[in-house]
Write a protein that binds this DNA or RNA. Structure first.
Length: 496
DNA sequence: TCTGGGGTCCTAGGACCC
DNA sequence: TCTGGGGTCCTAGGACCC
């Protein structure tokens, strides 16, 4: 490690100075084109074929987009999030390849298009999850196909015993001496000196493939953001090990866009500042970055330098639930209202399934070309009330009665998973004026009802109600509520 | 390239309170 | 009636991620 680059987070072996963070072993597991892999799992004939899994392409022309493209399909230029129509141009469907039609696409240049089947993917994901549960106690499941593991208590950065680079097959964890010099191995290449961490990661990867039947790429590093980048560095089927001490070197040459959190906009802003690589970003003046990008700027710089002390923590409960759907651009009011009603019902149903109350209801209306409008209204207190979701959503939609939209959405937020007493807010009228509050407020503290209409000088403060669990009432829905909450917790944020 | 669906976090301005 | 400062909540929009 003679390169002049100061390596963030490097610690001396014996120096227990506060943070021995550098010794953490964090694994990032990222399934390879997961949806396509799942489809292949149940349809082995798709092996080696370009496979495109899309949403909404079915009805013909389609307003759909590519959810996942297999690596074979990517070779034709098909990418995630690409409109299906475009994907079809790059890679026609197999079904369209008619050998008798001279105008039909060459069968060699076609792929398979399949509609998403989330339920099935979730089944596969839960098998993957079982493996992960077995492999690490500390996990964060980020999405259906991605997770972080903190394996510090299962393995280490010590060099594996026996001099050899003999590719042992996963998990024969004979640990050798305790010599803890982290191998200064090339980050992405096969390490000359294998660490126990590498063996561990290979074991995880192999088990996933063996037990769930789908391939994963794994990155191992002393922190989350480096592990994330590592898992991405050699996809598909990659295993990239970045030992402590080589994190900064590993990151430095990568384009800024490879840093987690740098999207197209930030990439552009950075480029204007002459910052092209993670190394540039790491070395950039952080005050300047803060001025250009806000607090995010310095944070990205730290990440780019390999400095990330976030702990691997389990995913918490969701903050919002939403549903949206695209439609052929229309200004037709009944169509819009019907759409919103259906979305509202669905969101409310999901909220109830998960045993959560919500205090804010909102809509989204996207105007062509892509102008996103959101409107939201908060209620005096958390509710579980499908009719109210619909009512408020439709009321908010009123502002867009004349508007041509291409997409509509409904969202509930300010979720409350605590107790599910009092599921409905009786008598609340979305548009009601201050005069309206006499009836209906039944079990609500009055005054706050209708506050969203603006003008009432309400006496009972919102927080009084929210904090103060409206005096134990005998509605006895408690049991069910509790059960629902339990279920919700178990099924949220994880892969089930 | 005319862009699906489900999320997260951050920022900025305004209302309101003390 | 020309005016300070701090804090919280709300809404809207934006960037990003998978």
């Amino acid at each position: 490690m003679t390169g002049g680059t100061p390596v963030a987070g490097e610690t001396l072996p014996g120096a227990g100075g506060g943070d021995d963070d550098a010794d953490r072993v964090v694994c990032h597991v990222d399934m390879d084109c997961f949806y396509a892999s799942c489809e292949r799992l149940r349809r082995p004939d798709l092996a080696g074929e370009p496979v495109v899994v899309g949403m909404g392409y079915e009805p013909g022309e389609s307003i759909g987009a590519v959810a996942t493209a297999s690596y074979e399909a990517r070779e034709f230029g098909v990418e995630s999030a690409m409109p299906i129509s475009e994907a079809l141009e790059l890679l026609p469907r197999r079904a369209d390849a008619d050998p008798d039609d001279p105008d039909a696409p060459d069968p060699e240049e076609t792929g398979r298009y399949l509609p998403v089947d989330l339920d099935f993917y979730e089944d596969v994901a839960s098998e993957v999850k079982e493996v992960l549960r077995d492999c690490a106690d500390t996990r964060r499941e980020v999405s259906i196909d991605e997770a972080y593991l903190d394996a510090t208590d299962r393995t280490s950065w010590a060099v594996a015993g026996g001099g050899g680079g003999s590719p042992s097959d996963g998990g024969d964890g004979d640990d050798g001496d305790d010599s803890t010099d982290p191998p200064p191995s090339g980050a992405a290449g096969p390490a000359e000196a294998r660490t126990l961490a590498e063996g561990y990661a290979r074991h995880v990867k192999d088990r996933i493939e063996r037990e769930a039947g789908v391939p994963a790429s794994v990155g191992v590093a002393p922190n989350m953001s480096a592990a994330k980048v590592a898992s991405d560095a050699d996809k598909p089927d990659g295993l990239v090990v970045v030992p402590p001490g080589s994190v900064a070197e590993f990151l430095a040459p990568l384009p800024t866009a490879d840093v987690h959190g740098v999207g197209p906009v930030t990439e552009g802003t950075l480029a204007e500042l002459g910052i092209e690589t993670a190394g540039d970003l790491a070395a950039a003046d952080r005050d300047r970055l803060a001025a250009e990008l806000g607090e995010r700027g310095p944070e990205l710089s730290r990440r780019a330098a390999g400095d990330d002390d976030r702990e691997v923590t389990p995913t918490g409960l969701p903050k919002s639930l939403s549903r949206e759907s695209a439609l052929p651009t229309t200004a037709d009011e009944p169509t819009k209202r019907e759409t919103v009603s259906a979305l509202a019902a669905d969101v409310a149903r999901r909220a109830r399934e998960r045993g959560c109350l919500y205090r804010t209801i909102g809509i989204k209306a996207v105007e062509p070309p892509f102008d996103v409008n959101t409107r939201a209204r908060s209620l005096p207190g958390p509710v579980d009330d499908p009719d109210l979701v619909e009512e408020v959503a439709l009321d908010l939609l009123g502002e867009f009665d004349e508007t041509r939209v291409r997409k509509l959405g409904v969202r509930v937020s300010k979720l409350d998973f605590a107790e599910t007493d009092q599921a409905t807010l009786g008598g609340f009228e979305p548009g009601d004026g201050p005069g309206d509050r006499s009836d209906g407020a039944a079990d609500r503290p009055r005054g706050s009802v209708g506050r969203t209409a603006g003008t009432d000088g309400d006496g009972g403060k919102l927080t009084d109600w929210v904090d103060g669990e409206p005096t134990a009432d005998g509605d006895a829905t408690g049991n069910e509520a509790e059960r629902r909450t339990g279920d919700g917790q178990a099924s949220l944020g994880d892969w089930s």
